Simulated assay, not measured.
Amino acid sequence: MKQVLYIAVFLLSGLGFSQNMTLFEQGNALYNDGKYEDAINKYQAILETEVHSAELYFNLGNAHYKLNNIAPSIYYYEKALQLKPNDTEIINNLNFAKNMTLDAIDVIPEVGMSKVLNNVSSALSFDMWAILSVCFVILAVAMFMNYIMSEGTKTKRFSFSLAFASLFLMAGSLVSAFHKYNLDKLDNPAIVFAQETKVKSEPNLRSEEAFRLHEGTKVQVLDTVENWKKIKLTDGKMGWILAEDIKLLNRF
């Protein structure tokens, strides 16, 4: 019975893959013919099957860009970049789309140890830092055992030094791992989809207007109160925006 179930699941997944490939090819053909709305519909049909890929999001971004849909084009380029962080083509197209936005927001540069720690921690994923920590522990134990069992002075000195260095690197890896975890946990970006929205000083319509944002601007979501989101900009400004005016990037 289990074998029949496995075969059925395999066949269904294969059928779904085939259908999505057909939709993707149809979408590409429509895009090449300049039928961008129709292409978007084909790509969206794939997303509705819970299939995600950088190529799919990239093509969606391109189609929306051709239609001058600022917010959707930036949103889907950002989604593609999440799956392929170092893809130069995605980065270039995203920069072109950002040039269409109205809001010019400064970026507060990181300085000092905070900048160093953030750069080091972001070099690897949390899982990779954790694996490195385990490897350094194993190396430290092996060198310590070698230190105990060795008789030569040079070998003992080398083993002790390497064991101490491994413990130091293990501690550094652990710090980087937990800092990377906290960075990822706090990273909750969103794109403004409203053509223009008023950001309030408090989460209610009667509160004072702090500033205004326009479609395509990227924000960080810090908190949620009912249908309001507390956001922060790269220049340090904060305020409350209606949840319906933004679209979160971390949701797949």
Rank of each mutant, 00 (worst) to 15 (best):
D235K: 08
L132R: 14
K218V: 12
L222Q: 08
S159D: 08
K185V: 08
L5D: 00
R251S: 11
I74W: 05
M21D: 12
H179K: 12
S166K: 02
V134S: 01
L132Q: 07
Y65N: 14
Y77H: 11
T197C: 04
F160K: 04
G152K: 06
S161C: 05
L117K: 05
K66Y: 15
A163E: 04
L83S: 12
Y31T: 11
V120I: 09
P85G: 10
E208K: 07
F136E: 01
L169Q: 01
Q82S: 11
M1P: 03
I70M: 06
N95Y: 11
G16I: 06
D187M: 14
Y36T: 11
D38T: 08
I70V: 08
G239C: 07
D38A: 15
L15R: 05
V4Q: 00
I90D: 02
N204G: 00
N204A: 04
A190G: 12
D223C: 06
A190Y: 14
C135S: 12
I131K: 03
Y43L: 13
L5F: 01
I91S: 09
E202T: 05
I148N: 03
S125G: 10
W240L: 07
I231Y: 11
Y43W: 15
K79H: 09
G61S: 10
E202I: 06
G152I: 08
N204W: 03
M113G: 08
I105V: 10
L11V: 00
E209P: 00
P72G: 01
K42T: 00
N227G: 04
Q19T: 02
F160C: 04
K84E: 11
H214R: 13
L15N: 07
A171F: 03
L132Y: 06
S121H: 04
L56T: 00
E202Q: 09
I131P: 04
F58N: 13
I105H: 01
M238A: 02
S161G: 07
V225F: 09
F24G: 05
L248G: 14
N250R: 11
Y31P: 02
S53L: 13
G34Y: 02
A194Q: 05
N188V: 13
M21L: 10
I246E: 00
A45H: 13
D38Q: 13
S13H: 04
K66T: 09
V107T: 14
L30E: 07
K84N: 10
A29T: 12
N146Q: 13
I46Q: 03
M170R: 00
D33I: 01
Y57E: 11
G172K: 00
I46C: 08
K229L: 09
A8K: 02
I108G: 00
M143C: 15
E208L: 01
A210Y: 01
S53D: 15
A63G: 11
L249C: 14
F10W: 10
